[in-house]
Design a binder for these strands. Structure first.
Length: 113
DNA sequence: AAATTGACGGTTA
DNA sequence: GTAACCGCCAATT
């Protein structure tokens, strides 16, 4: 049963995990949701990143979606990542993408490749 | 209280 | 490779 207490705990875990992403590495929203024990909350992780980016200082710019895309409407994210050596490209539609195979933080040591 | 929204993800076309 | 669709679920309207 998902009590409010559980949910606060989940949020706390999310912050903890994001704060531990190494410089020059990234995680996906889904990765963080799974690590925090709520595999179905990837969407809410994104919501959290948006709401805390102004209040807390977490490296939320190191979080991207499952395809390696950066957050829309946040040009700054590309610069912040580039400053750590993380390269990304912009396509015709303005979507910014990085290569997860290069930069994803391998917290799941049992993950293939 | 009901419907819509979204920094998501996986499947399907 | 892309786009559309669906399941997800707290937050917002």
């Amino acid at each position: 049963m998902q009590t409010d207490i559980d949910f606060q705990q989940f949020k706390k875990s999310v912050y903890e995990i994001v704060s531990q992403i190494p410089k020059g590495r990234v995680l996906t929203y889904g990765d963080i949701a799974r690590l925090a024990g709520r595999p179905n909350h990837a969407r809410f992780v994104g919501h959290l990143m948006g709401t805390v980016s102004h209040s807390r200082h977490l490296p939320c710019y190191r979080v991207v979606n499952a395809k390696g895309r950066l957050a829309p409407q946040w040009p700054k994210q590309k610069e912040l990542l580039a400053a750590e050596g993380v390269k990304s490209t912009v396509d015709k539609q303005g979507r910014i993408t990085l290569d997860l195979r290069c930069y994803r933080w391998q917290v799941f040591s049992n993950h293939p490749f």
